[in-house]
Every structure is written in C-alpha cells, then in structure tokens.
Design a protein around this nucleic acid. Structure first.
Length: 353
RNA sequence: GGCCACGUGGCGAAGUGGGAACGCAGGGGUCUGCAAAACCUCGAUGAGUCGGUUCAAUCCCGGCCGUGGCCU
C-alpha cells in the first residue's frame, strides 16, 4: 500500500497556505512547502512565506532515518510543522531534483511517524517530480559546460544537438535556449541521448490533489492586496538587504517582487537621488504611505515598481493555471468549500497497489 | 467667431498612395535538474465620419464631428 499524500495546488495568493494548515490540524498532518522561492533563507516577505518559528525538533532525535537535509529544528506555523522552507541561502542553487530528494525523504519520515504528508505549493514542476516520480536523470548541471554552451547561439546548439539526439530534437522546444542547453548538456555528459533519459518511475504515493479555484477577478484582488501588504511589511528593505549581499543577478533574486524592487533600487542608486545609507525604511515608501524623506520622483518610481510586481504576479498566476488545468487528476474546490468529505473518502479508501 | 494641430486595436505609439511596425495590457499554450524561470502563440477586413481625386487611399483634397492649443 502506497503512502497517502495530499497535495494542495492552485495559483499564487489563492489561499493554499491557510488551507494546508487547516487540513494539517484536522487530519494530523505536516506540511511540505512546494515552492521554489520559499527555500531561500531570509526571503520571507516577498515569497509570502508563512510566518512561523523555528523550534527544537522533538521528532528527529532518534536518528533512525538518514537525513539528506538534516536539521535540528522544525518550522512551526500556527502549531503545524512545515518542511521545505529555508533550505538554502539565496546564492545556493536548489533544483527540482534537489527538491525531489528532499521531499521524498520528508514524506517518508512523516509517513513513518504515522502522520499525513500535505504538499502545499504552486511550483507545478516540482510537485510533478514527486507525484509522477520523474527520473530527472542522474546528471546534475555542470556549471562549466553550461557556461560554454550558453555562450553559443541557439541555432548552433540545436544543430549539434540534432546530430547527437535526432529524436530529442523533434520533441524539444527548439526555440528555448535553456532547454536545448540542458538537453545537450545531459547528452554530452552521459554519452546517451537526453530523449532516452526522460522516464518516470512507478508512482510512489497515492495522492489526492486538491486545486483551489477562484474567479479571476477575485484572484486579482487578492494578488493586489497581498503585494500592498508585502510593501507595508517592508519588502523594499528586505530586497535591499539581499541586493547588498548578492546583487540583482543571482537566481533567487529573479523572483517576483525581488526582481522589480531590485531594479528600482539600482535605478535610484545610480541616479544618486536617494541616500540609501541612512535610516532606510523611512526613506523609501510609496505614495500613499506616510514618509517624509523620499523624493517625489523616487516614490513615483517605487509605485511603478510595485505595479510591475502586481502585473508580473498576475502573469505568473496565469501560467500556474495553465499548468494545473491540464492535470485531470486535480479535484477543484472553491475557496471556502469544505474538504472534509473529500479527504475523508480519500483516506478511507484503501489503496490496493 | 477666426487660425493651427491632431483624431490608428483596451492603452501607448510608428509608418506608408497598392500586404496596418512595435511596446504594454489581455487571451491561449509548452514544460523531465535555473520552473516566481525560460519559451511559443493569438487579437484592428480596417484607421472619427461623409464625400472627392486616383487603376488603387489609413496616407492626397474638401465638408462635418471631436480633442487640444493659439488669437480677437
């Protein structure tokens, strides 16, 4: 019998986190965040990381389970244990494959504890690695090779790739350089065509996917107000801290919120319009907020950056819906609907494979 | 009242006497190690409006309407 796992999916700002907590409380579960941005330590406000506290772990003490991502501590949100948060520093890479290794380990641990694993998150690809047990090839990225490949033109790369893996060349998105680079990278590193390495193992878990559905208008409202809330909570200062350490270029800074605000900060810095060495939080706040030091021009720019964040978040939500829509296994519920019977039936149903 | 300018898809905005760029927004889609990423794709049978010139008008001419500016 496969372990039963619940997954809560849906676009950003649809209320997944809260639902996850409710379900965890009701069914004795632990949450695993499936979010490619919440893995970064310290990136809290912009990733809408749930607010919680790190406590000494009670459950990890016996050491009976080998921990790939060992931690003495547990992240508690409203009394519910959360995994998948604060796994790496913002300059460390963390891929879908890393996540798969981490999450499967955590699911098994939770299962052994006799509790219910609840995957909560909007990173569809990461979730898919677990639900469909993708064998993400055993070939990690090779930074040197990748850098070399990336310096070449797409046409050139595709040409070489086609020689090495004609079948893959048919399947791949030939206009997406990032994909072609990876396929070529895998093929060269392993000596075997990338297209032959795309396999999925047998399903590991019995999964109930619950999708949160809400009217587009309502989702947009929720996105907008959440972004405003982030700003009020100090998004700009958070981004500035990371900008000072990592700049705007590293992967973790390409997240929505970070990207736009980082660009804004670079803009005003280069113009010398704002002294950013002083008491920062007082100097930078958008129009409509109470602040005295920022110039009107800079506040206008910040407002524009915030609008960009909202816009890009909407676009992201749309992409997420495109992803989830095509998975017919998802059971869609309206925000606010009870999941009681749905989950009850799922848990009572004995899986026979 | 007179003079001048302008009137292009939801917004912004080019250009041309003979296939209406582009940006943004919006819709649809792809996805097997960067996925909040990367990539693909679709929207004006028609240019305020009515006439005229021309083989042909969004582009030239005129009337009307509208907008902005200037003048008395």
């Amino acid at each position: 019998m496969k372990p039963k796992v619940i997954a809560i999916v849906g676009p950003t700002a649809s209320g997944k986190t809260r639902l996850g907590i409710e379900i965890a409380k009701r069914w004795n579960g632990e949450v695993i965040s499936v979010d490619s941005r919440q893995v970064y330590r310290g990136m809290d406000i912009g990733t809408a990381k749930p607010e919680g506290t790190w406590v000494e772990s009670e459950i990890e003490k016996d050491g009976s389970i080998k921990q790939l991502f060992g931690s003495r501590k547990t992240f508690l949100v409203d009394g519910v244990t959360h995994w998948g948060i604060d796994l790496v520093t913002p300059d460390e890479p963390f891929s879908a494959a890393d996540f798969k290794a981490y999450a499967t380990e955590k699911i098994n641990e939770i299962f052994v504890r006799g509790r219910l694993p609840i995957l909560v998150g909007g990173t569809g690809f990461w979730l898919k690695t677990i639900i469909d047990n993708l064998d993400l090839t055993s070939t990690p990225g090779d930074p040197a090779l990748r850098a070399e490949l990336e310096s070449r033109t797409l046409g050139d790369l595709f040409h070489e790739y086609k020689q090495l893996d004609p079948e893959g060349a048919e399947l791949i998105d030939k206009q997406n350089k990032r994909r072609v680079v990876r396929a070529l990278e895998v093929t060269k590193l392993t000596g075997k065509p990338w297209s032959e390495q795309q396999t999925a193992g047998e399903q590991l878990y019995d999964v109930l996917q619950i999708g949160l559905l809400l009217p587009r208008e309502e989702l947009i409202e929720r996105i907008d107000s959440r972004v405003e809330e982030m700003v009020a909570r100090g998004l700009v200062d958070e981004v500035r801290r990371f900008k000072d350490t990592y700049g705007c270029e590293c992967e973790s800074m390409t997240g929505i919120g970070y990207r736009q605000v980082c660009a804004f900060l670079s803009d005003i810095t280069s113009l010398g319009a704002v002294d950013i060495s002083g008491t920062r939080s007082e100097q930078l706040c958008p129009i409509g907020h109470n602040c005295s030091l920022a110039s009107f021009a800079d506040r206008t720019k910040l407002n524009a950056a915030i609008e960009d964040v909202k816009r890009d978040t909407r676009a992201y939500a749309k992409r997420q819906m495109t992803w989830f829509k095509r998975d017919s296994r998802i059971v869609w519920v309206n925000l606010g609907d009870s999941t009681e019977n749905l989950i009850k039936r799922f848990l009572e149903n004995r899986s026979n494979t």
